[in-house]
Simulated scan of single mutants.
Amino acid sequence: MTTYAPTTGAELALRGVGLGRSEDPVLDGLDLDIAPGELLAVVGPSGCGKSTLLRTLAGLLAPLDGRVTQDGTPITRPHADRALVFQDDALLPWRTVRANVELPLAIRRAGTRAERRQAAASWLARVGLAAHAHKLPHQLSGGQRQRVQLARALAGGPRAVLMDEPFGALDAQTRADMQDLLVEILHDTGATVVFVTHDVDEALYLGDRVALLGSGRLGAVLDVPHPRERGADTAALRQRILDSL
């Protein structure tokens, strides 16, 4: 049983997507294409619909208008092909760290129980938590819990990973470490990623493109010339994004 075999990223698309009351929509006529294997960072002010966008892509919220598709097929419900990672770790507090990582594999009935345990152990080693497998989530730091959540999300081999400000509550150094870990792991998986953040610098470091969302409407979608290069000269692009928020 492979633990992080390369995958083919999903192609995600929204066409005329609307959600919410007509006089005050959360999303309004949204059109967006996300290429297979792309990391799209989404930035915008609080309440502009970023989390709603992720939940719509996940199949947790059905749009009132328009279509949401994966590889051309309508998204109508959650699927193991799409993993959600939240800012709040959402780990099951009564399950050990290893059991939390095993969960998506158990739901998919992937391999034998022994194989699932081995896969979970491999993922925990991958995120630097092999020694913490038998602990409960409350015994870990915030950064460690986010590592577990990342391992759990990717253990099932999803083709799309939808991340809702997963590092927003972490201190600056832990946040930078988690960003680097995410870059390293995603290089191996090939998954498509939609990453919501308030942090423009985080968006510019992680994203192949940055989508600007405001009041449920999509503004510019900007190419990042040097994604995943710390210290790259993105000052002009950063200022353009800040001016748009």
Rank of each mutant, 00 (worst) to 15 (best):
A133M: 03
R147A: 02
V161W: 01
E184S: 15
L140V: 01
V161A: 12
V194E: 04
R152W: 08
Q179R: 11
L154M: 09
W123I: 08
T189P: 03
V193F: 00
A155N: 12
M163K: 05
G156A: 13
D171R: 04
L181Q: 10
V200L: 01
D199Q: 07
Y205R: 08
A119N: 07
H134T: 03
A191L: 04
L204H: 05
E202W: 04
T197M: 10
T192L: 07
K135E: 06
T192W: 04
H198E: 07
R126M: 08
W123Q: 13
L162P: 00
L186Y: 10
D180Q: 15
R147K: 13
D188G: 09
A130V: 02
A191P: 00
A151W: 12
D199T: 11
T174K: 09
S122G: 15
A169R: 11
L182G: 12
A172C: 04
S141Q: 04
L124F: 07
V127Q: 01
Q149L: 15
L154I: 10
I185M: 06
E184C: 13
V183H: 12
V148E: 03
A130P: 00
A133N: 00
K135Q: 10
V148C: 01
T189H: 07
L136S: 00
Q149G: 14
L150P: 00
M178E: 12
L162F: 09
V183Q: 12
R152D: 13
H138R: 05
A131P: 05
V196W: 01
V194M: 02
D164M: 12
L154F: 03
V196I: 12
A169L: 10
L129T: 00
R126A: 13
H198G: 05
R145Y: 12
M163A: 07
Q149M: 15
W123R: 12
H187W: 14
P158Q: 10
E184M: 14
Q173S: 05
L182R: 02
Q118R: 15
E184D: 15
Q149D: 15
E184F: 08
G143K: 03
S122F: 06
A125P: 14
L206M: 13
A191Q: 02
A120F: 10
A169I: 09
L170Q: 04
G142A: 08
A121P: 09
L182F: 15
W123K: 07
H134C: 01
V183C: 13
P158V: 13
P166I: 09
Q146G: 13
G156E: 06
T197F: 08
D199I: 10
V196R: 05
R126C: 11
Q149E: 14
G156R: 01
D188N: 09
G190D: 02
D201K: 04
L162I: 09
L124S: 08
R159C: 11
R145V: 15
H134F: 03
T192F: 02
A203G: 11
L150T: 04
L150N: 05
L186S: 04
H132D: 11
P166D: 11
H138K: 02
L154H: 04
H187C: 09
A133G: 01
Q118T: 15
R175D: 11
S141C: 03
V196M: 10
V183T: 12
T197G: 09
P166S: 13
L162Y: 07
